[in-house]
Amino acid sequence: MKRKNLSFYFRIYCKILAQDLKSKMSYRADFIISTIGMICTNISGFISFWIMFRNFPSIDGWNYYEILFLYGFSLISLTPVQCFFDNNWSLRQNVYTGDFIKYCFRPINLFFYYQSEVFDVKGLGQLAFGIGTLVYAWIKLGLGFSVLMLLKLIIFLLTASLIMIALQNAAAATCFWIQNSFYVLDLAYRFRDYAKYPVTIFSKAFRFIFTFVMPIAFIAYYPSLVILRPDQIPILSWLSPVIGVLFFWISYKIWMYGATRYSGTGS
């Protein structure tokens, strides 16, 4: 048997993805309706955002376009978790009914196999929306452009994505221990809304929680500072890539540990 390296998994993923897209297209109405839904969600989110800023021209020293930048940044960084890890939402159901056992019989990584099963196309609409917002804010802020800045942006976007994925993995994995874990997952999902705002607007206690307990401040705030406020970057911003990788690794371990504890229901 050949060793299963990264390129093996990449190839498998692409094949599963291609098949998945093919089958999704066959449910045409479903595809169109969910795309429209996604667009509406984003537009309504944007409108409430805009109304708020008509009344308060700046929040804690952050002007409209800077907040818009943060908003776009968080939308883009939420795309991978939406696209590639959406099956986490079904984990609870799979564990509860005992269907999860089928993932244990394949000679490939359990976490990979489970997540590869679902690719959520809706995330792509969000990505387009996020990029549009970010570019618009970037131009209005007159940030200029250099290859180094683009590189920084990409690295910090990846970081932010990893943290979001880690949060969701850990929240979803709670279902291996507790029955009604939906609330945990839902809580993690709701908390990410706060990622769109500068963490300095929250009280000290929440600032601490969002930085060290549920690190959502790393989803957009700390990374954005690198681009937006290059003269006053806190050490936490530079640390965010490390924290992103670390959190992802921890959440993966928790998930896998939960899965091995799983014993399945009788049949």
Partner: peptide
């Protein structure tokens, strides 16, 4: 994982195939 390569499993009414494919 190594064991999985050597065995095949069918569990009653739970399909292990990709539902939509």
């Amino acid at each position: 994982s190594k064991n999985a390569q050597e065995i095949g499993v069918v569990f009653g009414q739970r399909t292990q195939l990709w539902w939509a494919l």
